[in-house]
Amino acid sequence: MMRLAPQSEAPRAAVTSPKSAATADDAQHLAGLLASIANSRCRRSFSELFRYFAPKLLAYGSRQFGNEQIAADLVQETMTNVWHKAHLFNADKGAPATWIFTIARNIRFDLLRKNKHRRDEISADELWPILSEQNESLEDDYALDREILMQEIGAYYAQLPEAQREVIEKIYIEGKSQQEVSDALGIPLGTVKSRTRLALIKLKELIA
């Protein structure tokens, strides 16, 4: 909502909360640097971003590792990620500092385990989504999946028995949890689950 506000509203926010407004300006400037790195591979923007974040990353790395060399590796690897992945930064989802922090956090985790390196080892990026991109988009993605799913099975949908169709509709269209469906329809949770399973099996048969 905030980002949709017209320009003329900005000064009012600055008056009520000068400190956070200044921080927001900084964040906006840094986001601008990231945008020009993403759009035009601008080395000057990156150098400015680097001068701002590298000493902070070095301090973070030193606190984490107690070792200057590994801390320097963390700076190098984090900023290399920033250089190549600037297009993945999304200002709507958080501040540049938050994005860079989550990258550094993940690289820290992987650096800590490099000694006992195993090829198949799960990586930090698989466990910690960068800047919550995975978390925040979750509902949207599920909604999308549901839509695709409903399109695929829409034609067969009407062929389900009424009781199963009702449950499937509440879960896949209204997005209710199975517990909520159980409460809404006044039927046991186990019944909701078995109806869901039966309906999905039936649909699968119809589609196959």
Binding site: L58, A59, A97, I100
Partner: peptide, 15 residues
Amino acid sequence: EEELACEFESAPAAQ
């Protein structure tokens, strides 16, 4: 996450 990022950004920087 925002809180930790804020600590990261505002902590004294290294040389």
